[in-house]
Design a protein around this nucleic acid. Structure first.
Length: 814
DNA sequence: AGCACGCCGACT
DNA sequence: GTCGGCGTGCTC
């Protein structure tokens, strides 16, 4: 540093838009000269110097003129390590979001600050007061009587006025304005007491009660005031007088909201079968060599992949390194949580959507401090603030829940890869039906492939029959259940065995159509048919949440002739109840008014044998192990096969294989029935045989021929706007601008552009949606062209009301 | 996105 | 004259 230079912080500022976002330079004032990268701060921003929160991402010396200064610190210590800041930058330049969006996605919600504006009355002379309107005078008098800063929202509510009136008062100098930052969730603290340093209690003359307390504090060093009162039976006044005499002092300690009871931690060895052991040995050698690498653990359903990575996690834990274990949906894996907490006690932190915001914050802090070294959670667990990561495991790596559908539209697999690279750690992808992309990488030798080909213990694969529903209909059976499936359910009921019935969500919702005019009831805001929900007797839109009470009056022709069509889970359940009146049926689907915890309760009830039949959508295919289930029925396999994008076969294969694999996990042999009207489709036959290898060979051929991942990346650009014409115009303009840039600057870049075209659901929330699909390489050059075009369009006044989103390798083309 | 500044119409 | 309407441009 030269003499005339000073410390400058590069700060990611909250609430910027992509169009003008950057790292903003602020001068570090002298009294804050020991700030560190990774600390959050409050800075004045914009013309009005209103406060914004931000995070310091870089520090350097310079002599730039006219910089504003950092106002204050929000964290007394950095909350991000340098590696986490590297991850912030990684997300920023890969997913087209602002710097602070990237910071925010890595933090638990509870840790974020809310900036609120407060107003106070200023003492002014009568001339000024008399110039106010009556209404303004009223507001002024109100603030004067409050005699303390009043939150903006409160004033607006009390007087039902707009913000402009307050701004006017402020400009007149009648009221004062200040911004303050508040945490949504407070740290939970407890009042502690301890003796002051260098105090010998014999030097003082104390009352008997004070003596007792002082003795206690000599022994225990420190205790909460509550504890002191509890053990001595005295009140707080005794400690109060000790503090007054400067013998003891009060301070606050943070407490955790989740009380951890370290109950009988299991120390017994994980027992592995010979094939599991050799898989483990292979993975362990990868873990040990100090290079970052990716391994794919591919094991058939029921082969015991969990035990393998459990042992690996144990090794990592014993090396005092951190582990992240990601699962697709935590509400469906209570068993896994139980296994881990019973083995590792409070060294496990669970990032659980069922936790309150405060609890999540506490879990985050336990990890941040190094108190918990094993993190178990869903997608966002990949951002766990571990300081020294040795291993990241992604269970069921092909699951779509690892991809975020909100900005930043990240894929947890890519973040995991990046963090493992930074920590020289092992990334372990685990699956019975790996994504085609991952298996391809393994085949090419870029990932290390480890196979488990046999089921653990006595369990064998279920016997699967495929039933052609066309034939059933020709025989006069128009119900959801084939004769075969009906008979098997009936026999299971007699033998006190459990059954699982899988319905596909798509096309299985109950919609309403008019018998007079033939119209289907659609959402007024979206181009989607409304579905009927019996739980609240309303018709609802799944896209925007719009709902109206059910009536039989057609909104179009006003005849009272609305009628249900389609077969929802509710209808399929009804049929089941009609067929087997004595059966105890449990229905589960994502739309039912179910909370996360009720999934768990219901699944546990099913596991305990309180129900005979579990019927529902995707969720029934995953989660708990039910040893008593010997029959799995798939009502209609077709809808999942023939949806709209290149991944539908992969998803259908994975779902069918998983659900079929649910049958016969215990001692009894299982059976499964797949009902379809296209029995000749090879995906159905292969998932019945659980033949991933043949499926993969077919699928990779298709991907190569049609240039889909892993042979290309897919970039989906979405345009949303209220005015359809402008939206189309914007889509065309954007696409052309992009193509022109690529042609002039990167003429050799391989590229195929499709579109613009209407999105499948072309209107959501009154916004028209169009899209461009680009097959490309997700390279630095490609991303920089996208970024450049996005910035250009954010400055374009003509299209300022059109939203443009970019999603690289999206889940679907919607 | 906000927010402030500035340049024009309708009001006591 | 002046209040406040919205159009315009900037954010370290």
């Amino acid at each position: 540093m030269k003499n005339d230079e000073f410390l400058i912080a590069g700060i990611a500022v909250d609430n910027t838009t992509y169009g003008f976002d950057r790292l903003f330079s602020y001068k570090v004032p002298d009294h804050l000269s020991n700030v560190k990268v990774g600390q959050r701060v409050l800075v004045p921003f914009g013309r009005g110097d209103r406060f914004r929160q931000g995070m310091i991402l870089s520090l350097s010396y310079g002599k730039e003129e006219n910089l504003k200064e950092i106002s204050s610190l929000l964290d007394d210590k950095p909350i991000f390590t340098q590696e986490m800041i590297d991850t912030v930058n990684f997300i920023h330049d890969r997913y087209f979001c602002t710097y602070y969006d990237s910071v925010k996605v890595m933090l638990p919600v509870g840790i974020n600050y809310n900036i609120s504006t407060f107003y106070t009355a200023v003492k002014v002379n009568d001339d000024v007061l008399n110039s106010l309107t009556d209404y303004e005078r009223e507001i002024y008098d109100y603030l004067l009587s409050e005699n303390k800063p009043v939150k903006k929202e409160t004033i607006l509510n009390v007087f039902s006025i707009g913000e402009n009136s307050l701004n006017k008062l402020y400009r007149q100098g009648v009221v004062n304005r200040e911004d303050d930052a508040f945490r949504k969730t407070k740290d939970a603290t407890v009042k502690m007491v301890s003796l002051c340093d260098d105090v010998d209690i014999n030097d003082y003359k104390l009352t008997p009660k004070q003596q007792k307390v002082a003795e206690l504090l000599t022994v225990v060093d420190k205790a909460s005031v509550k504890e002191v009162c509890y053990y001595t039976g005295y009140t707080q006044s005794v400690t109060d007088s000790l503090v007054k005499k400067k013998i003891a002092r009060y301070f606050t300690d943070e407490v955790m909201r989740i009380p951890y009871t370290v109950s009988d931690v299991k120390k017994d060895e994980v027992v592995l079968s010979p094939s599991q052991q050799s898989a483990f040995d292979n993975l362990y050698s990868k873990y040990c060599d100090d290079k970052a690498s990716v391994s794919l653990l591919y094991g058939v359903t029921g082969s015991g992949k969990t035990s393998v990575f459990m042992k690996l996690i144990e090794k990592c834990f014993n090396d005092n390194k951190g582990t992240i274990l990601m699962v697709p949906e935590i509400a469906l894996t209570p068993q896994l949580i139980k296994i881990f907490t019973s083995r590792f006690g409070d060294n496990v932190a669970v990032f659980h959507s069922g936790l309150s915001i405060g609890e999540r914050l506490d879990e985050y802090k336990r990890v941040s401090r190094g108190d918990a070294k094993i993190v178990l959670g869903t997608r966002s667990a990949v951002f766990a603030p571990l300081k020294n990561i040795g291993l990241i495991v992604m269970d069921e790596e092909q699951e779509s829940s690892y991809k975020s559908e909100q900005t930043p539209r990240y894929n947890a697999r890519d973040i995991a890869k990046f963090r493992c690279y930074k920590h020289n750690a092992l990334l372990l992808l685990s699956s019975a039906t790996p994504s085609v992309e991952s298996f391809y990488m393994a085949e090419k030798g870029i990932y290390n492939l480890v196979k488990l080909t046999e089921r653990y213990g006595k369990a064998t694969l279920p016997q699967v029959s495929v039933v052609d529903m066309n034939e059933e209909q020709m025989k006069g059976n128009f119900s959801n259940y084939s004769t075969t499936l009906k008979e098997l359910i009936s026999s299971n009921l007699i033998h006190k065995k459990q059954s699982i019935i899988l319905l596909n969500r798509r096309g299985y919702n109950t919609f309403l159509s008019c018998r007079s005019c033939g119209q289907v009831v659609t959402c007024p805001n979206c181009s989607i048919s409304m579905t009927y929900h019996s739980a609240n007797n309303r018709m609802m839109c799944h896209y925007c949440g719009h709902s109206v009470p059910y009536t039989d009056e057609c909104p179009d022709c006003h005849q009272h002739t609305l009628k249900f069509s389609g077969a929802g889970t509710q209808k399929a359940e009804q049929e089941l109840v009609d067929m087997f009146p004595s059966a105890r049926v449990l229905r589960m689907d994502a739309d039912a008014t179910m909370t996360k915890s009720s999934y768990e309760t219901k699944l546990t009830a099913f596991a305990n044998g309180e129900y005979d039949i579990l019927i529902g959508t995707q969720m029934v295919a995953k989660g708990l192990d039910f040893p008593n289930v010997t029959l799995v029925g798939v009502i209609n396999a077709d809808q999942m096969l023939y949806s709209d994008d290149y991944r539908s076969y992969e998803r259908a294969f994975s779902l069918l294989t998983q659900v079929v694999g649910r049958s016969g996990r215990g001692d009894s042999k299982g059976v499964a029935v797949i009902q379809t009207s296209t029995p000749e489709n090879y995906v159905i036959g292969l998932s019945a045989k659980q033949d991933y290898d043949t499926f993969y060979k077919g699928e990779i051929g298709v991907r190569k021929a049609l240039l889909y991942p892993p042979f290309s990346d897919i970039c989906l650009i979405g345009y949303q706007g209220i005015m359809e014409g402008a939206t189309i115009k914007c889509a065309n303009a954007f696409q052309n601008a992009l193509i022109n840039k690529i042609k002039t600057n990167y003429s050799s870049m391989p590229l195929r552009v499709l579109g613009p075209s209407q999105a499948y659901v072309y209107k959501v929330n009154n916004k028209y949606r169009y899209k461009t699909i680009i097959k490309c390489r997700n390279s630095k050059d490609f991303r920089s062209v996208i970024k450049e075009t996005l910035l250009e369009f954010s400055k374009n006044k003509e299209f300022k009301n059109i939203g443009i989103t970019v999603d690289i390798n999206p889940l679907s083309f919607n």
